[in-house]
Computed example of a mutant assay.
Amino acid sequence: MKNIITLFLAFLAISCNSQVVSLEDAAQCRDNPNCSVNYNYVKDINNTLNKYVGIWKGTYNGRVYEMKFNKSLYNDMGMKKDELTGRLRITTTGNIPVIIFDNFNEQDDAKTHFSGLGLTSDLQGYRMIFAGLVPSGCINHGTVSLGITSGIPNQMKIMYWSNNDIVVGECPSTFSQTFPEQQEILLMRQ
């Protein structure tokens, strides 16, 4: 199978200078040091992102996580890619919910700081980068992995990993990351 994909990618590289490749091909090429496909547009040819689009909601540790994912086109200096952009609202559970984080109604994708990195190399999930509010000395940005189990299209599992950055100063003891570190959260399509 790898040889077929490698041959296919090689054929794509030779066939034209300005290439369009699928999300799947780009994901498999990203982790392959022998891949030399030259492309300028990573396109959702197979509509793979559609299964993530919509509003998702779940609870974890006394918090309600509500996420909205849209498909968008990232375009920077001639390099384009179809990606997911996200919106996030976190509230406490209970009769009178308290808003912990909310960018749900932000119109500008760049201001949500929640955007797509691409499919995982095994093509079983999608990765996004997230950056929340950060007091001095704290880390509140990293990768969010999304996964929808085949056969259960209305259920999504997410998990967050912080970036390993060097910080300056002491993080306040009252600080809490937007997402819990490496904890699976189950969301249901709304």
Rank of each mutant, 00 (worst) to 15 (best):
M159Q: 11
T143M: 08
W161V: 13
G142I: 05
M1S: 14
R30W: 11
Q182E: 10
F101I: 04
R87G: 00
R89E: 06
P97D: 07
A110K: 15
N17S: 15
C138V: 06
N46V: 05
G116T: 04
L84Q: 03
Y52T: 06
G86D: 04
A27V: 05
N47I: 01
V37F: 09
D76M: 08
N105T: 14
I4H: 10
N38D: 14
N61H: 00
I14L: 14
K57D: 06
N61T: 00
D165H: 04
E181H: 09
K68L: 04
P172G: 07
T93N: 07
N140T: 05
I96Q: 13
I5W: 08
I148W: 04
D76E: 13
K80G: 03
V134N: 11
I166L: 09
D108N: 15
Y41T: 05
C29W: 05
M128N: 02
F8D: 14
M159P: 00
C16P: 00
T112N: 09
G94K: 05
K80V: 05
D109H: 12
L133A: 15
R63A: 03
N46I: 01
V64E: 09
N70D: 13
I99R: 07
S36L: 13
G147Y: 11
I55S: 11
M79C: 06
I129P: 02
K157E: 14
P172N: 09
D25E: 12
D76G: 05
I129E: 10
L133R: 15
G94H: 06
I14M: 12
V134A: 06
L7F: 11
G54T: 04
D76I: 08
R89G: 03
I55G: 01
V53I: 13
E170L: 08
T92S: 14
I148S: 02
T59V: 04
Y39P: 03
I4W: 07
V98F: 09
G142H: 02
D102H: 09
G58F: 00
Y52M: 07
N70A: 09
S162F: 03
V21E: 04
H113D: 14
R127L: 09
N61P: 01
T92D: 06
G62L: 03
S150R: 12
I5Q: 12
D165Q: 10
F11S: 15
V98K: 15
Q183V: 10
K111C: 07
N95M: 14
G142E: 02
I166W: 08
V134G: 01
F69E: 02
T112K: 13
I158T: 02
A13Q: 10
I4L: 12
N3A: 12
L186N: 12
I55R: 05
E66H: 01
G86K: 00
V53P: 01
I4R: 09
F179R: 00
Q177F: 02
L84C: 05
S176Q: 12
V144S: 01
Q28I: 13
G151D: 07
E181T: 07
K80P: 01
T6E: 13
L119T: 05
M188A: 11
L84M: 08
G118P: 00
P180Q: 06
C16K: 13
